[in-house]
Every structure is written in C-alpha cells, then in structure tokens.
C-alpha cells in the first residue's frame, strides 16, 4: 500500500480538507450508483499503487489509460479516473491520489462489513 502523502506540497484538489471525508463518501456514492463493486475498486487501487513512484505526467497518462482500458466497462469508475487526471500536477499529488483510491476501496469494503456485522451487535446495531 502506498504511504500516505507526506510533507510535499499538494495541488488544491488533493489538499482539500474533505478529500478523504465528505468527498470520498460522495465519490463512493457515485461509484455504488454506477454499480462499481468493491472488488473492482480494490483492483483499481492496486493498479494505482503500482504507480506510486511515478511522476505526475506519467500518472496522468496511466489514469486515462486505465479509464479507457481496464475500467472502461465500469463507466462510473472510468469517469472518476478521468476526472482526477488533470488534477495531478505536482510530485506530492501522486502519493496523495494513490492513497485516496486505497482509502476509497478500504472504506467501501469496511462499510459493507459494517452492514453485515450490524446484525451481530446487541439490538441489531441500529439503536441509540
């Protein structure tokens, strides 16, 4: 797994406070609406992890290549990859974006697990 972004400067989209909060949930929501499965998201995160030592220009190309190639059958995921391509501009963005996609995949898997695990909590996990 790629290390989290360090102290390198980031482009504004990747420095946003809600990048891994509200924005991540919004992206995840769109992916779920687009019928993208957690396993596909995890595969995508792994593909991007392999690019963690890339420079921004190379990662941009890879994002587009993945959108037009392997993930073309998942339009919502392809769209997300394409949308990030122009926003990767400085070296720090590479680790920040690969980490973001890993968080997306982990969060998706965890929310699914929490859903199934809910029934194990006393009272079914839905009470206050």
């Amino acid at each position: 797994m790629a290390p989290p972004p360090g102290k390198l400067p980031l482009s504004p989209p990747l420095a946003a406070r809600e990048l891994n909060g509200e924005q991540l949930l919004e992206e995840l929501y769109e992916l779920r609406e687009g019928q993208v499965r957690t396993a596909q998201l995890a595969a995508c995160a792994r593909d991007l992890r392999a690019q963690r030592d890339s420079d921004p220009a190379r990662l941009k190309k890879q994002l587009v290549a993945l959108a037009e190639g392997r993930y073309a059958p998942q339009p919502a995921l392809a769209q997300l990859l394409r949308s990030w391509a122009p926003r990767v501009n400085v070296p720090g963005d590479v680790a920040a974006l690969t980490s973001h996609f890993e968080r997306l995949a982990l969060t998706s898997a965890l929310l699914t697990a929490l859903h199934y695990g809910r029934a194990r909590l006393p009272g079914g996990g839905g009470r206050g």
Binding site: L25, R32, T112, G117
Partner: peptide, 21 residues
Amino acid sequence: GISAREMGARELGSSRESPPP
C-alpha cells in the same frame, strides 16, 4: 446497482434490514 436514493437515505454499504450474521 444499489440506489441509495431509492432507499431514502445515502446509506453506503448498508440496508435497513441485515441478513443473519
């Protein structure tokens, strides 16, 4: 696809009734 809107809540990875654990 899951439609959270259809479920009336933007609930990701969950539904109102869980399967048996």
